[in-house]
Lab assay of single mutants.
Amino acid sequence: TTVKVNGTKYKFDTPEEAQKFAKKAADKYNLKVVVDGDDLRVE
């Protein structure tokens, strides 16, 4: 599972880890998590 934040992709072994990271990033930058198929985007 990958998470894309500000054009940078981060790869995670499990969707749970990816979800946690995406949520933290979204909170930090005051953005929202967008599900894109198997991957997540923070925008």
Rank of each mutant, 00 (worst) to 15 (best):
T14M: 03
K32T: 13
E16R: 07
K9E: 12
A25C: 15
Q19W: 15
F12V: 00
L31E: 04
G7T: 05
D39L: 14
K9T: 15
E17W: 02
K4V: 15
A18E: 00
F12R: 00
V42T: 03
F12G: 00
K9W: 13
E43H: 06
T1K: 08
K20F: 10
E17T: 04
K24N: 12
T1C: 09
K32H: 11
K9D: 09
Y29E: 05
L31M: 14
D13T: 11
P15H: 09
K24V: 10
V34C: 07
P15T: 08
K28H: 11
Q19R: 13
R41P: 03
V3D: 00
E43W: 07
L31Y: 09
K28F: 14
T2L: 07
V33C: 07
E16H: 07
T1F: 15
D36C: 10
E16I: 08
L31D: 04
K9G: 06
D27R: 12
D38I: 09
E16N: 06
D39F: 12
A18Y: 01
T1N: 07
A22V: 03
K11Q: 11
K28V: 08
L31F: 08
V34E: 07
A25I: 15
K9Q: 11
Q19L: 15
K9C: 15
K9R: 13
G37M: 05
P15K: 12
R41C: 08
E43S: 09
K20G: 07
N6C: 15
A22L: 05
F12Y: 01
N30Y: 08
D36K: 04
K24F: 14
E17Q: 11
A22T: 01
D13R: 14
D36M: 07
E16T: 07
V42E: 03
D36P: 02
K4T: 15
T14L: 04
K23G: 05
A18Q: 01
L40E: 02
V42R: 02
G7I: 03
L40I: 12
L31C: 11
D36W: 07
K28Q: 11
K11P: 02
F21E: 01
D39R: 04
T14W: 02
A22N: 00
Y10H: 04
D36E: 09
P15S: 09
K28I: 10
A25T: 14
G37T: 04
V35A: 10
D27Y: 10
K9S: 14
Q19A: 12
Y10M: 03
V42P: 03
V5W: 14
Y29H: 10
T8R: 15
K4E: 13
N30M: 07
N6E: 05
K9I: 15
E16Q: 10
K11A: 08
V33R: 00
A26N: 02
A25Y: 15
E17V: 03
K24Q: 13
D27V: 10
R41G: 04
Q19G: 06
G7Q: 06
T2Q: 06
E43F: 09
A22E: 01
K32N: 09
E43G: 12
F12I: 01
N6Y: 12
D13K: 13
K28S: 07
D13Y: 07
F12S: 00
A26V: 03
G37C: 05
P15W: 14
V34I: 13
P15E: 07
V33S: 02
E17I: 05
K4Q: 13
D39G: 13
N6F: 15
V3M: 01
Y29F: 11
R41D: 03
F21K: 00
E16K: 06
A18L: 02
K4Y: 15
K32W: 08
D36Q: 06
F21T: 01
Y10K: 01
T8W: 13
K32E: 09
K9N: 10
N30I: 04
D39S: 12
D27L: 13
K24Y: 15
Y10L: 04
G7P: 01
T1A: 06
A25M: 15
A18D: 00
T1M: 09
A26T: 03
L40A: 03
D39Y: 11
L40R: 02
Q19Y: 15
K11M: 12
R41W: 08
D36L: 06
K28A: 11
V35G: 06
L40N: 02
K24R: 13
V34G: 04
D13M: 09
Y10I: 05
L31T: 13
V33G: 01
Y10R: 02
K4F: 15
A25P: 01
Y29G: 06
A26D: 02
F12T: 00
T1E: 02
D36I: 08
G37W: 03
L40S: 02
F12L: 02
K20E: 14
T2Y: 13
D38M: 11
D39A: 09
E43V: 13
T2F: 12
V35C: 10
Y10S: 00
K24E: 14
D13G: 11
L40W: 08
E16C: 05
D13S: 13
D39H: 10
E16W: 08
V33I: 13
E43P: 03
N30H: 12
N30C: 13
F12M: 01
D27G: 07
Y29D: 05
Y10V: 03
D27A: 13
L40H: 02
Q19H: 12
V34A: 06
P15G: 04
D38Q: 11
K20C: 11
V35E: 09
L31G: 15
G37Y: 04
Y29W: 12
E43I: 13
R41S: 11
A26H: 03
Y29R: 05
A18R: 01
K4H: 15
Y29A: 06
N30K: 11
D13A: 13
K9H: 11
D27S: 10
V34K: 06
K23T: 08
D13I: 07
V33Y: 04
N6D: 06
E43K: 06
E16Y: 08
A22D: 01
F21I: 00
Q19K: 11
V35N: 08
V3F: 01
P15L: 13
T8Q: 13
K9F: 13
D38G: 10
F12A: 00
D27E: 14
F21H: 01
L31P: 02
N6K: 08
G7F: 06
K4C: 15
V5Y: 09
